[in-house]
Design a protein around this nucleic acid. Structure first.
Lengths: 221, 221
DNA sequence: GACTGATTAAAGCAAGTGATTTAAATATCA
DNA sequence: TGATATTTAAATCACTTGCTTTAATCAGTC
């Protein structure tokens, strides 16, 4: 008892990408736990649970694929920004370094490369908060590269900060940026845009200023 | 077909509190979606799903009860700190105001009032990230009071900041603090304490310094 | 001791879960 | 055209979910 199959309108690569993008959106909108394999399939236009299992094997692999999908290009974008700065030869401030961390993430929010929009940032925030997966562990070896550079360059500009203080602050800052971007995107999409919010560009630039100041604050002791 | 009932060792109030505290812990450890009514009951010493439904009615009411349970005392603690400062008569700095926001939250982490520990902060972080419930909406009218004061007093000390910038920053700061505390607590409990982290007290104080600097940073435009 | 109301236990329900299996429909290439 | 491998559909499995129902057991009062 099996059904009739429509002609294959999409190539396998297209079907795979469509599943990934649908999953990303749903995860972002509803949270990791609230999205089932069936739902992803349905929203992607497939009728039952078979294809997503066919393409990815199991649920965790879907999440991994979503991360993989965007992480590489964000990583590259960050590395490119840093390299550009070094090539320019001028002084590289702490502000510039943090900008290289924040801007590629924020750029995903414009849907600059066709659709998608801010889904990834919101997905990332969900993943950070989730006990289900260890996002840091999952990403290791992919975007570690650019984060490493950001960390080292920032460290060099904050010699007065004790090492453990610096490390705590960096972690807090990394997360705060993701949550801030995700939160703004959520408000934008759910329509409950708080009275008057800053335009995205201004928001991002001010966020960079904030975080630079936070990192550089005089230590407590 | 019903079972045998053990003598009622706890009063109804105690049973209720035990359910709330168990729920808080489980929500904190595993995330909101990953905890079922059955699990809460089991971990609280009850055998099936009946009592939690008996006491709370439905699942959302359990979450609400967990918030209610701690929110009020944190709110009071914040108001007390602010009143104390005003009574002391000296100059109240931005740092002091943020401290009044952060410290009562962090104090929940010591388990200073008997057990519980940092569960609430982690629960709060899960709730913030969850699409399942709107924590801000849920809390309105309870801790709004202390947050309002913190906001107004901070505003008075940052007259140069445009209003929309101030509002964005305040929201970012509020969240960053919750996530920072929750993240630290999680690492502590899961044992994967990153090599050498700051002791809690130092961590909290430095967090306050960071966030004060972030709020007071020169605006972008 | 029997009645009453509050609390607990057990079983069950309809719905949904991730995953597997089976079979049909397609594309590819000989 | 016909055999083969790839891709989709449908049905199914064992399990969990929130919640309800039914029945048993307690404490308190007369």
């Amino acid at each position: 008892m099996a059904g009739k199959r429509k002609p294959n309108e999409l190539g396998q690569q297209e079907t795979r990408e469509r599943l990934i993008e649908t999953a990303e959106r749903l995860f972002a909108e509803r949270g990791l736990d609230a999205v089932s394999m069936r739902l992803i399939n349905r929203e992607a236009g497939q009728l039952n649970t078979s294809s997503i299992h066919y393409y990815f094997g199991n649920r965790d692999a879907v999440i991994e694929a979503v991360v993989e999908h965007r992480m590489s290009r964000i990583n590259e974008s960050r590395l490119a920004l840093l390299a550009e700065m070094r090539a320019a030869g001028g002084e590289i401030t702490l502000h510039d370094i943090i900008a290289a961390y924040v801007r590629p993430l924020a750029a995903q929010n414009d849907g600059c490369d066709g659709g998608g929009g801010g889904n990834y940032v919101r997905f990332l925030a969900q993943a950070y908060a989730s006990a289900e997966i260890d996002i840091a562990q999952l990403a290791r070896g992919r975007w570690d590269q650019s984060l490493q550079q950001v960390a080292e360059m920032a460290r060099a500009r904050l010699p007065a900060l004790p090492e453990p203080v610096f490390r705590e602050r960096l972690g807090i800052m990394f997360r705060a940026v993701v949550y801030a971007l995700a939160d703004r995107e959520r408000d934008r999409l759910t329509g409950r845009e708080r009275s008057t919010r800053l335009p995205l560009a201004a928001f991002v630039e001010d966020l960079i200023h904030m975080q630079a100041a936070a990192l550089a604050a005089a230590p407590a002791l």
